[in-house]
């Protein structure tokens, strides 16, 4: 080594070279994120409550079967088709339990890290702010899938074992095969997932605005309630088309013999639009905000 090289080495111990990047980083980050979501006691409690809903309905209907058409949607159908237990449970969870679950987890996503101060340490790891939002969004989506999956699976398994399928009678009175019925169940779960995706986008955006996670959660729930209230006012029928919750229960269309695909797609478009707009707003906020927490 020449003396010049030696000096160069001494003078520049750290050349400005981009560091080594390992593959599969997103997977590592996502696994870490889901671990923190699913190990948190609060979130486990939420999942437990959601999982209890189909169990309560199933047991109640088994003990005292309602007469057809009585009570909340689908409950009357359960005795003739066990799969309806899953649909009844989802319908019951959709106005309050599921939105609260989404609001808690998505509202906590960024605000929770800001609140504990861990946000500044994640960003100096470094994790780019866009990547952090992506991982956080993926974690929230995983939780929504788990929540809906739990209600649906427990509903289907319990419903079929308690009440049988009786050849899968649909709302329209027709009978389809068991596999067709299960496929429709997956369809309903997917529809509910898209419903909640819109709300998750809103909660994620709120989560980037505050260092108080409860604030983001409450704002999301309040907004969901406002949507429902506005939807119930006949004089406001003109704006119903843009209310996030307006088409939430339209998955019933999947339970008729003739599935109106265009109506279902239309119902899913709105939550997807909300999701796109609000995650874009969240991205715009998180990439420019000063981290003072």
């Amino acid at each position: 080594m020449s003396s010049a090289e030696m000096v160069a080495e001494l003078r520049a111990p750290v050349p400005s070279m981009p560091p080594v990047r390992y593959h599969g980083v997103f997977v590592r980050q996502f696994v870490s994120e889901t671990a923190i979501i699913f190990r948190r006691r609060r979130n486990i409690a939420i999942l437990a409550v959601l999982g209890a809903v189909p169990i309560f309905i199933g047991v109640a209907v088994k003990i005292s079967a309602p007469r057809g058409g009585e009570g909340p949607a689908f409950i009357g159908q359960i005795t003739s088709n066990g799969l309806f237990l899953a649909f009844a449970a989802l319908t019951l969870c959709l106005p309050v339990f599921l939105p609260v679950a989404v609001a808690v987890v998505a509202g906590d996503a960024v605000a929770g890290e800001a609140n504990t101060g861990t946000l500044r340490y994640l960003l100096t790891v470094p994790v780019s702010r866009s990547r952090l939002l992506l991982v956080k969004t993926a974690g929230v989506i995983a939780f929504i899938i788990a929540a809906i999956g739990l209600v649906t699976v427990i509903g289907v398994v319990l419903g079929v074992s308690l009440f049988g399928t009786h050849g899968m009678t649909l709302l329209s009175g027709d009978t389809v095969s068991v596999s067709n019925g299960l496929l429709r169940s997956v369809g309903v779960a997917a529809y509910v997932f898209v419903d909640l995706l819109g709300l998750a986008g809103i909660a994620l955006f709120f989560s980037t605005l505050t260092e108080v996670p409860v604030g983001a959660m409450a704002a999301t729930v309040v907004l969901a309630i406002i949507f429902t209230v506005l939807d119930a006012v006949p004089q406001l029928s003109g704006i119903r088309g843009i209310l996030l919750t307006h088409h939430w229960l339209d998955f019933a269309g999947l339970l008729r013999t003739q599935v109106n695909t265009s109506q279902l797609l239309h119902g899913m478009l709105l939550p997807l639009g909300y999701f796109a707009i609000f995650t874009a707003a969240a991205w715009s906020r998180i990439t420019t905000a000063d981290i003072t927490s």
Partner: peptide
């Protein structure tokens, strides 16, 4: 610490 390290793209898991 595992969480912070999982987020670091420059470290060997």
């Amino acid at each position: 610490l595992r969480r912070l390290d999982a987020y670091d793209a420059s470290t060997d898991p």
